[in-house]
């Protein structure tokens, strides 16, 4: 019963607050209710009124009415504090599963100060954000992630209790933009993962990581000997090996290297390997079914590889769709979207 009501309520809220990276809070989407303190204060006002009646004390009446009116004014003030606030997701962060993924939000309150705003998503909270009138304020909200994939926060709660804490006004921001959550790196039991390409197999085991080969897509004018035909046969991509050094070859981190291992685990192994290579600054490439990232070094490359691992086999969440990847709702198995990628690819 309660569950049914809750899901109806969620649906209604989702309809009322469609996904958008930018939202101006106003009467249409701000909710307001008394807090616990507000309810107690209401009770206190009632007791004061009864005291006034029983002791026929006009001044107690006066105080009661005064405080009652101030409470109503405070309700409007709380509402007003949130209303007009404009919140935009300007950057969704990236990180490993289990980490807090930073989301950068820009807050602008054009008409008046919005004081003591708190942002919350799942367990993470950002309290006491003051947005001065007409100024833009960038805040970073770290959102916990639980598994690799797109992290599209179901709802970011935007709440304020200012000025008296007797009422809370809140709304939600439901961003379209997703953060990227890399697989949580797990060391593979055996180092069997590097697979060398073609002719260079014998020279392949280079541990020092000083390979100077590069793999790049085919360009006009490239010699046909240089095309990695084996790869072409497998993937249909024409790749060229650029030799810059005599020894060593690019290390390929290959999805197919872990036979019989669960897909998610494979990605975790690969992530670990990417991290290892990046740490030692070795040159490596990533070979995933349907996607190949040529050998390279550097942080940007590692990042690109991790991203590829993160979103491997997943679709970008549709806007408005209930695909709360990586959020707790999903973790608890409530959301329908979870089955779509956990199920497939398992041995």
């Amino acid at each position: 019963m309660l569950k049914a009501f809750r899901s109806r309520w969620q649906r209604w809220v989702n309809q009322r607050i469609p996904r958008a990276d930018q939202r101006v809070f106003g009467q249409r989407n701000i909710f307001i209710l008394p807090t616990g303190a507000g309810v107690v204060f209401g009770g206190l006002l009632l007791i004061m009124l009864i005291t006034g009646i029983n002791y026929q004390n006009s001044l107690i009446y006066l105080l009661t009415f005064l405080l009652g009116a101030v409470v109503v004014a405070a309700m409007h003030q709380t509402h007003r504090n949130l209303s007009g606030l404009e919140l935009t997701v300007i950057q969704a962060g990236e990180g490993f599963a289990g980490d807090m993924i930073p989301f950068r939000l820009r807050a602008v309150s054009p008409r008046h100060d919005s004081l003591a705003i708190s942002l919350a998503c799942d367990d993470s909270q950002l309290n006491q954000q003051h947005i001065a009138s007409g100024q833009q304020e960038d805040v970073t909200l770290a959102i916990p992630s639980y598994q690799r994939g797109y992290l599209q926060p179901e709802r970011i709660l935007v709440e304020t209790r200012f000025p008296f804490g007797l009422f809370k006004a809140w709304s939600w921001l439901r961003p379209v933009t997703s953060g990227i959550v890399y697989p949580n790196p797990i060391a593979a039991p055996d180092v069997i993962s590097t697979v060398e390409d073609g002719e260079e197999q014998s020279q392949a085991r280079s541990v020092d990581g000083n390979d100077h080969a590069d793999i790049r897509p085919w360009r006009e004018g490239d010699l046909s000997q240089r095309v990695q035909w084996k790869r072409y046969a497998r993937t249909g991509e024409m790749m060229i090996t650029d030799w810059e050094g005599e020894q060593g070859s690019p290390h390929w981190l290959d999805f197919d290297a872990f036979k019989g291992v669960d897909r998610e685990l494979r990605l975790a192994y690969l992530a670990h390997q990417v991290m290892e290579r990046a740490r030692t600054n070795s040159r490596f490439g990533l070979n995933l079914p349907g996607q190949v990232i040529g050998p390279d070094t550097g942080a940007a490359h590692a990042n690109r590889c991790l991203k590829a691992l993160a979103i491997f086999g997943l679709e970008q969440p549709r806007e408005g769709g209930p695909l709360p990847h990586g959020t707790r709702a999903n973790e608890n198995g409530k959301a329908a979207g979870s089955a779509s990628f956990v199920g497939e690819g398992q041995a």
């Binding site: 009415f65 005064l66 009116a69 006491q128």
Partner: peptide, 30 residues
């Protein structure tokens, strides 16, 4: 007000002003 926003600058002045505005606005009703 201070307890709900302890770190805003000029909390005291703005607190009094806010309270005063509320009182002025609600006085006719009272």
């Amino acid at each position: 007000q201070v307890v709900n926003a302890p770190d805003i600058p000029g909390a005291m002045k703005s607190g009094w002003r806010r309270l005063g505005m509320m009182l002025v606005k609600t006085l006719p009703i009272v």
